[in-house]
Design a binder for these strands. Structure first.
Length: 462
RNA sequence: GGUCCCAUCGUCUAACGGUUAGGACAGAUGGUUUUCAAUCAUCUAAUCGGGGUUCGAUUCCCCGUGGGACCGCCA
């Protein structure tokens, strides 16, 4: 069996992390089964669709490593076909013109509200042979939805879902301005693209019942559906664009690695035994719909950071350096080319206490900046005796020929004895003077990553 | 409100109807290192409630409770 999957976002806003996960699951399923993964831009809402969002969606997907097969489908280009299908449905008696004005509909809704009963369009024009067609109303086209019995769908994630057909109204497939609605366009396009598996958010469950009726009216093969639970924000609500960390760009800016985010998203609502870390290859091989849970899951930033930390520590250092360089360039954090080689050489310890690329950058600032700024608070930590230690250090340091662990250890151990202190007594003031911070890489690492003159300069600065 | 769906540590989740209910993140404690946010070790912590079915229920069924989604001429 061939698997043809798709991701069909509308370019009405930046892609958020829930959408990314939907795309990922579709892509994984396609790759696993050596099928196809298509991208369809659903841009039929002309008012809200923006080309910049289309671009943002594609670049977000690419950043995660998700590439669609073939060229992207632009839904609006297929409108003519959608209309033809609407006509066909009318001819075959599966759809009809409805001349109810918007006022009339609103009236109905009001009435229902007052009576406390749920609104469903009253199907006034469904079989209206004797009704007089009003001249001043442009009609919409409605699909003749089933009015009796039950429908059920075997969902690959949700299992059996069923509902009474009466709860589905005669939904609109062609608007007053003769443009197709989502229910029609998506169904026609999925059919034309030969989609075999639709993985989408479970907010589409009801749509599936509607769309399935269109499939059967047209005698089209119905694809398999898998409705995955939505991702909730940390506060437990539906993820919205207002949530801070909701778009891919937010994560890129934080300094999250794409492999880490892919791994996190994969494990959110899906599991394979006790396994936590999945390489790209393992993701593809091990992913299955059976492992997807039915309940919504909350976003957990500390977990994202933790997985990110893992990837930072485990990927090849050269690659990490490239990622860091790109990150700094993108976010306007200057890295002089003269410092580049030092950073590359030092990345093995700069990454040590870092959860994000931003953290690595912060750890590297003492290399990148020529001026060391020491906060007043840290300056207070350097008292008179610390100054004496630093001075003695400088004297001995200037004399050594080669900066290596042995020579440095010798100096520092002598100082510890001479000043009757411990390593901290020497190490902390040294770190503050050299980096401007109490925290950071090991003192020996710092000393070996800076030029001798630079160290002397900084030591004299106190 | 109507319809549909869901329910295991704080979070993500594992567990052919039989496990001391497991792992990871977070949290706590302790060790180590050179400051620590690194590292190692240990610990705390869950089957929403009530009924069934069964020798036995986290697992199956019903009811309740809680949460979510949908209810657009948006997608």
């Amino acid at each position: 069996m061939t698997f043809i999957c798709r991701f069909a976002p509308s370019p009405t806003g930046p892609l958020h992390i829930g959408g990314v996960r939907t795309a990922l699951f579709n892509w994984l399923l396609a790759k696993k089964n050596k099928g196809k993964f298509y991208l369809r831009i659903e841009d039929t809402d002309k008012e809200r669709s923006k080309d910049e969002f289309r671009k943002q969606i594609i670049s977000s997907l690419n950043w995660l490593g998700i590439k669609h097969d073939g060229k992207e489908y632009i839904q609006s280009k297929n409108i003519k076909k959608h209309k033809e299908i609407a006509d066909e449905l009318i001819k075959k008696g599966f759809a009809y013109y409805c001349y109810c004005s918007e006022d009339e509909i609103n009236e109905q809704k009001e009435k229902c509200k007052k009576q406390g009963i749920p609104y469903v369009y009253n199907r006034k024009w469904r079989d209206a042979k004797d009704l007089k067609i009003p001249e001043n109303v442009k009609p919409v086209v409605r699909f003749k939805s089933k009015i009796s019995g039950m429908s059920s769908i075997k969902d690959l994630v949700q299992g059996e879902m069923s509902l009474s057909n009466l709860t589905i109204e005669d939904f609109i497939i062609l608007r007053q301005d003769n443009t197709p609605t989502y229910q029609l366009s998506a169904t026609v396009d999925d059919h034309e693209m030969g989609i075999t598996h639709v993985i989408r958010g479970d907010d589409h469950k009801i749509n599936t019942f509607k769309q399935k009726q269109i499939y059967s009216a047209l005698n089209w093969a119905v694809p398999e559906f898998a409705h995955i639970p939505l991702i909730h924000s940390e506060t437990g609500k539906k993820l919205s664009k207002r949530d801070k960390a909701s778009t891919i760009d937010d994560y890129i800016k934080t300094g999250i690695l794409s492999d880490a985010l892919r791994n996190y998203l994969l494990r959110l609502g899906w599991a394979h035994k006790d396994k936590e870390i999945f390489s790209l290859e393992e993701s593809i091989n091990l992913f299955d719909l059976k492992g997807v849970g039915k309940s919504p899951s909350k976003l957990d930033m500390s977990r994202i950071l933790s997985i990110n930390e893992y990837y930072i520590k485990h990927i090849e250092e050269k690659k990490l350096f490239e990622l860091l360089k790109n990150y700094c360039e993108k976010f306007n954090k200057p890295v002089k080319s003269s410092k580049s080689s030092v950073i590359l050489k030092s990345i093995n310890f700069l990454k040590n206490k870092a959860k994000t690329l931003e953290d690595i950058y912060q750890n590297a600032r003492y290399i990148l900046n020529d001026e060391v700024k020491i906060s007043a608070e840290d300056k207070n930590l350097i008292n008179q005796s610390s100054k004496a230690i630093l001075k003695d250090f400088l004297d001995s340091f200037e004399k050594i020929k080669k900066i290596d662990k042995n020579s440095l250890e010798e100096i520092i151990n002598k100082l510890i004895k001479a000043h009757k202190t411990n390593f901290k007594g020497v190490g902390q003031p040294l770190r503050i003077v050299l980096t401007g911070s109490k925290f950071g890489p090991a003192v020996y690492d710092i000393l070996r990553s800076l030029d001798k003159e630079e160290i002397i300069k900084r030591l004299k600065n106190i």
